[in-house]
Amino acid sequence: MSRLEQRFAELKAEGRSALVTFITAGDPGYDASLQILKGLPAAGADVIELGMPFTDPMADGVAIQLATLRALEAGQTLAKTLQMVREFRVDNQTTPIVLMGYYNPIHRFGVEAFVAQAKAVGVDGLIIVDLPPEHDAELATPAQAAGIDFIRLTTPTTDDVRLPRVLERSSGFVYYVSVAGVTGAGSATTEHVSSAIERLRRHTDLPISVGFGIRTPEQAAAIAKLSEGVVVGSALVDKIANAKTAEQAVGDVLELCSALAQGVRGARKA
């Protein structure tokens, strides 16, 4: 059983939703970012999405664009992101890590080498924003062959005709992007999320995590009642942007993570 399957199975038994946290690897610098990464599980993160910085994050809003720039300016590379996961796994074998980003840095690194190293350091899944199922052969197929889950984004524009194609090769969980827009933009109503999840469930048995526009413990709690996972990214990343020092960045991110975790854990599923 993969770490993602294991984690979602445990939470199902507990009767609660997962808190999925996103941070950009190397933001605001390698050491502080690693400290945040290592601190997230104790602060209540159940699954960690680790962003691989890319100069041209076309689907991201300002918060994650700036996080990406901070990381790149501090010298982050894909090799260093893999190294971060390796260091994280020294004392954590249970929290799943999903790498999230754009295809070009992986393409440049070499797909074969990337998949082998990602598996070796303990990466559990991949979310590649600009690789739709039409391009599965490039990365999804080799990654899954190596035992790394490939997590699909489904969106308000993914209609019933297209949905089976998108879900066909999904594994780990399904990410529902609750608003048509960039990360960190407006949030969807619970009514919208509720009916969207109902629609997804007709097509898949995988756990469903909902993201985009979720910023507060209250919002997280509301979504946690509906889905198996709640993704928070821009709000955490904003804490780093607003911090005056690296220590403060670490403290503020973990503090918000704890508050979000309380929200999610307090919302027992009906």
Partner: peptide, 22 residues
């Protein structure tokens, strides 16, 4: 049919945009 000229081209976009480009 996939928009490829040899190995170049394609449709490397976010899922939100896929239905639109199709």
């Amino acid at each position: 049919a996939n928009g490829l000229f040899g190995e170049f081209g394609g449709r490397y976009v976010a899922e939100t945009l896929m239905p639109l480009v199709l």
